[in-house]
Design a protein around this nucleic acid. Structure first.
Length: 803
DNA sequence: TTGTCGCGGGG
DNA sequence: GTGTACGCGACAA
């Protein structure tokens, strides 16, 4: 039998325009569609709930009659399909209703195991695989969401609550901003401060959602805040909450690790997210996390910061600190209205910019759109694709299996050179691990169909096409959006294929620690190969990490020389492994592995790693460090010394504002809690509060603390208006901060100089030895870490492969 | 100093 | 029936 494997990626049923699916254990599925992108159709369909089992023994033991599954979806009774191949889950069993199936299986299982079993999920994990009803439906039919539908054709609604606080048991909703599918913003407000007014607001909100009838509901932290908040308020106020498209069904809970604790006063450890049947609830916070997982460029994950980062907020964006919103509403309600309106507008923009990948994934994988938006790519996307592929091919699936105790080995990290290097190039391999999987055919041992490798191959190739088509489409067009989204989705899946392989604790069905180790071994081998080849061609290796290398090049090289050398090295790497020229820099300070500073050719300084950026660091020290490193990398040693002396002078003259020697801390203990623990251990921040005469504070408060004369702690209150910080006492301990400057901040430059030069550079002016050599003669240095270079000694390349 | 644990968000 | 990693801050040893 030949297997039409393109179905593995896309399913096989071409029904267009599915925007939501809801299925129940009764075998009833409801499908909402916009076949041509326009009007909504609601269709009801019967499906046969099914489960995968390791054998039919339990059915036999229960004396259940069953028939061979002939593929007839309307057949009555229990049907069994035997699956081929070595997998442990060898039979697919279905019935017209879930409870018929479950009762029969559990009766036999109870006998066999000698204990009462009432749910299939109670069977040992390696004996069964059960999907939620919607996924049973999608896998069985080969349907997926959004065929022939553009993202712009989805009807999307945003809503944002303004509340009197964060706890839905005691705080109220007083305003709801609604972004409509047409792009308008509507404001619903409570007409009073009591239960009646809030209940009325909730009822108007439900009515408006029903009228607008969106396919998708969006907000930032929707699942962590707005949705559970609305539910709790509705419950306490006894307001029905039929937000979905099935009017007899309220909000439904589903287990989710990144959910909120299921109410009951937090006594219940279970974490859940809420489902609104018939609509897809998309949390832009999930999209932001997923985006930054790869990009690592966002300053924070809050809506305002992210919106600013993506250019979604105008210059007049209304900003109000969270805990002041309700108070401001009392005095200046229009400000809060503008604030809430900006929130939903930004969410709509953010959902469009970052939501494309999940939208595209929903065209491939047999899961609901909202699940694909919040799931991890490995267990959430690859696993469903593989399960559907195996069933389509009529093959048995492997069961989840515990590892054999083999430990997983990771990537390589080498620091070759510490100190200052001029003219630095960075190269790295794009998607190293999936490329190695493809090049050396490394896949899970329990995947006889080689489905994972097939998916990776297909996704890599089709991604190239998607990128090409995106380029050809007009900027801003639906086609451009769709193809870029598809490309992003495919990249996401490809890059998680290795994570899928390496997942521990029997997390993923096809996990294979030996295959994963073979991937990382090839990765380390490839990295060393690159390093050797670069060094042989004149590179001064600085640092190599997993899939990338920083190295210095001779002064007289042009960029063309650099690129030519990289191309030569690239040609030596295994097929499908693409080495790329990532960037070039005027200079680099290498401090420790993963801690370095780069100076770009246009004069910008980039600091990487904990040694150079810490939120606790005192601002005067950070400022010094930036200036000193900039001077250092520009070759200006006198400038480094000047930066140090200038800072010392400023400290002694108390020209440094107090706020710049203070460090920001967040208080976690209450005054009572600290009073209790104070005997065992004194903590500077709390002592500072006491000594400043402040004995009242709340956990969560942020304060700036600094050291005054005689080691006393002092406090600056965190104030909204930064300008007010200028009027300060400047009564800080100069000697302490002068010592800290050298001990903590100048120390970051230690690798850049010989020890005696360093001592000279960072001596106090009056401590300079009388006959010190001229500072002008001091040069930055770079030091080879000799033991690491030994790794580059030629050794025969391993030729042993594994499959 | 070093190891571990938990968070990131929302009003 | 859930499930990213990573950098950072807070705390305990």
């Amino acid at each position: 039998m030949t297997i039409p494997r393109d179905e593995w990626l896309w399913g096989w049923d071409t029904t267009p325009g599915i925007v939501s699916v809801w299925a129940e254990e009764s075998g009833q599925a409801t499908v909402w569609r916009r076949p041509d992108g326009g009007a909504l159709l609601t269709e009801r369909a019967k499906f046969r709930p099914w489960v995968l089992l390791s054998s039919v023994d339990d059915l036999r033991a229960a004396g259940v009659r069953y028939q061979h599954d002939d593929g007839d979806a309307n057949a009555p009774g229990i049907r069994v399909r035997e699956l081929a191949g070595p997998g442990a889950l060898r039979v697919a069993v279905s019935a017209e209703r879930w409870n018929v199936l479950e009762t029969a299986i559990c009766r036999g299982a109870s006998k066999r195991l000698g204990q009462r079993i009432t749910r299939v999920q109670q069977l040992p994990r390696h004996e069964r695989h059960v999907l939620p009803p919607e996924e049973q439906y999608l896998v069985a039919t080969g349907r997926t969401y959004f065929r022939n539908l553009a993202f712009a054709q989805l009807q999307r609604l945003q809503f944002d609550l303004e509340t009197t606080g964060l706890d839905p048991r005691v705080h109220r909703i007083f305003l709801i901003a609604v972004g409509t599918p047409h792009g308008d913003v509507e404001l619903l407000e409570a007409r009073g401060q009591d239960d009646h007014a809030e209940a009325d607001l909730l009822r108007r909100f439900v009515t408006r959602v029903q009228q607008l009838d969106p396919d998708v509901i969006e907000n930032h932290n929707l699942h962590g805040f707005d949705l559970p908040f609305v539910r709790q308020r509705a419950k306490q106020l006894r307001v029905p909450l039929p937000l979905g498209r099935l009017h007899h069904t309220a909000l439904v809970e589903r287990a989710a690790m990144r959910g909120v604790s299921s109410d009951r006063d937090g006594a219940d450890e279970r974490r859940v997210r809420l489902i609104v049947p018939g609509r897809e609830c998309i949390d832009t916070l999930d999209a932001v996390r997923r985006y930054d997982f790869a990009a690592r460029e966002l300053p924070g994950y809050g809506l305002k910061a992210v919106a600013r980062h993506f250019g979604l907020s105008g210059p007049a964006r209304e900003l109000i600190p969270g805990d002041r919103i309700h108070a401001v509403y009392a005095s200046d309600p229009d400000r809060v209205r503008r604030y809430a309106a900006a929130d939903v507008t930004e969410v709509a923009g953010l959902a469009r910019i970052l939501g494309g990948a999940a939208f595209a994934l929903a065209r491939m994988a047999p899961r609901r759109y909202e699940r694909l938006a919040d799931a991890g790519a490995a267990t959430g996307v690859i696993d469903p694709l593989l399960v559907r592929a195996y069933l389509r091919a009529g093959h048995a699936l492997p069961a989840h299996a515990d590892g054999d105790g083999t430990v997983h080995s990771g990537a390589a990290l080498y620091l070759f050179t510490a100190g200052v290097v001029q003219r630095v190039v960075k190269v790295d391999v794009a998607s190293l691990y999936p490329s190695l999987m493809r090049a050396f055919r490394i896949g899970p041992v329990r995947d006889p169909l080689q489905a994972l490798l097939f998916l990776v191959d297909q996704l890599v190739e089709q991604r190239l096409h998607a990128k090409q088509r995106a380029k050809e489409a007009a900027a801003g067009s639906d086609e451009r959006f769709t193809q870029e989204a598809m490309s992003a989705a495919m990249k996401l899946v490809v890059n998680s294929a290795y994570g899928y392989l390496a997942a521990g604790d029997g997390l993923t069905r096809f996990a294979d620690v030996h295959a994963a180790n073979e991937v990382t071994r090839r990765g380390r081998e490839t990295l060393l190969l690159m390093c050797r080849a670069l060094a042989e061609r004149g590179a001064q290796l600085i640092e190599a990490d997993t899939d990338g290398v920083y190295f210095g090049v001779p002064d007289h090289w042009s960029e063309h020389d650099e690129r030519a050398m990289v191309d030569t090295v690239a040609a030596l790497l295994p097929p499908l492994v693409r080495l790329e020229f990532e960037g070039r820099y005027a200079a680099m300070l290498s401090h420790e592995a993963k801690n370095y500073a780069l100076l770009t050719f246009d004069g910008r300084l980039q600091l990487k790693g904990v040694a150079f950026r810490s939120s606790r660091a005192e601002p005067y020290g950070e400022a010094f460090l930036r200036t000193a490193i900039a001077r250092l990398l520009a070759g200006d040693v006198i400038g480094v010394r000047a930066a140090y002396l200038d800072t010392l002078t400023a400290l002694h003259g108390r020209a440094v504002p107090t706020v710049d020697v203070a460090s920001r801390v967040r208080l976690r203990k209450s005054p009572e809690a600290y009073a209790r623990s104070r005997q065992q251990r004194r903590e500077f921040a709390y002592e500072a509060l006491w000594q400043s005469g402040r004995q009242q504070w709340a956990p969560g408060d942020r304060v700036r603390v600094y050291r005054g004369a005689n080691g006393t702690g002092r406090v600056i209150d965190e104030v909204e208006d930064e300008a007010r910080l200028d009027h300060d006492a400047r009564d800080y301990d100069v000697a302490y901060y002068a010592a800290l400057l050298r001990r903590t901040f100048a120390a970051r430059l230690a690798r850049a100089f010989h020890a005696h030069d360093f001592d000279l550079l960072f001596a106090d002016a009056e401590q300079l030895p009388l006959f010190a050599p001229a500072l002008e003669t001091i040069r930055p240095v770079a030091t080879r870490e000799d033991d690491v270079w030994q790794l580059l000694e030629p050794e025969p390349l391993s030729t042993t492969g594994q499959t």
